[in-house]
């Protein structure tokens, strides 16, 4: 565990809290893409199925392979799952009337189908768990596309929404640094699937980061895209 990895995870965790805080404080999920949030629940569900493996080891008192890192990962995985499901739940119950569904027009099959096909072809091992993990990595990389499309459609984002997007995008950028660090310091460490997907994911945020920093530098509350 290095400083880049832990910072990335904390930034990711912060993104959930920012979004939940925004929704609770303003009683609105305006400007937030339900489709992107739904994809994140699918991403975490497919990726963290190994929680059952850890749970299985715990209830059989088989602690031999459970390390501090396992406990940390398990704790964070449960938090990420709970937070993403809670966000989707909020957007479909008490905040449904404020949801930007009419403008959230991205067709999810356009990312779901290619990610599923790629996961079946390019994976480290042809097992159900590994294919679902790979699918989640590919899907996460592009899951922000409905959110970016909604942002372009709207032309601007309020302060908390833009901080949220910065946290979500920034976390993967920090993971890129973490991978470089690990590659340099750990023997035999490589994971091309995560690296390429992580690079694509970060690149998709490129424009957004630019406008976010312009906003921060100019001291504006809202992020505005050029018309």
């Amino acid at each position: 565990m290095n400083i880049f990895r832990i910072s990335a995870d904390l930034l990711h965790l912060a993104s959930f809290f920012i979004l939940i805080f925004k929704m609770k404080a303003t009683k609105s999920c305006k400007g937030i893409s339900f489709k992107t949030q739904l994809m994140y629940t699918l991403v975490f569900t497919c990726r963290y199925l190994d929680l059952f493996h850890v749970l299985g080891m715990m209830i059989t008192f088989n602690f031999a392979h459970i390390t501090g890192l396992t406990l940390y990962n398990t704790f964070m995985k449960i938090l990420f799952l709970a937070a993403s499901y809670y966000i989707v739940y909020l957007m479909r119950t008490e905040l449904k009337s404020t949801s930007d569904d009419a403008r959230d027009t991205f067709v999810l099959w356009h990312i779901l189908a290619p990610c599923a096909v790629l996961a079946l072809i390019f994976n480290a091992q042809f097992t159900i768990l590994e294919i679902l993990w790979t699918f989640s990595i590919y899907l996460e990389a592009v899951a922000v596309m409905p959110q970016l499309m909604l942002l372009i459609e709207t032309g601007e984002a309020d302060s908390l929404s833009s901080h949220y997007m910065f946290a979500v995008g920034g976390y993967r950028a920090l993971y890129l640094v973490n991978w470089v660090y690990r590659y340099a310091t750990e023997p035999y460490y490589s994971n091309w699937i995560a690296w390429i997907a992580g690079f694509v994911q970060t690149a998709l945020f490129g424009d957004f980061f630019y406008y976010y920093f312009v906003k921060i530098m100019s001291g504006d509350a809202a992020l505005k895209l050029p018309t």
Binding site: R5, D9, H12, D50, H53, V54, M57, H65, I66, T67, L69, T70, N73, M76, K77, F80, L129, E130, W133, Y175, N178, A194
Partner: peptide, 10 residues
């Protein structure tokens, strides 16, 4: 050390 999970990152 063998990890409890398949992958050691989130």
């Amino acid at each position: 050390a063998k990890l409890a999970e398949g992958h050691d990152e989130l």
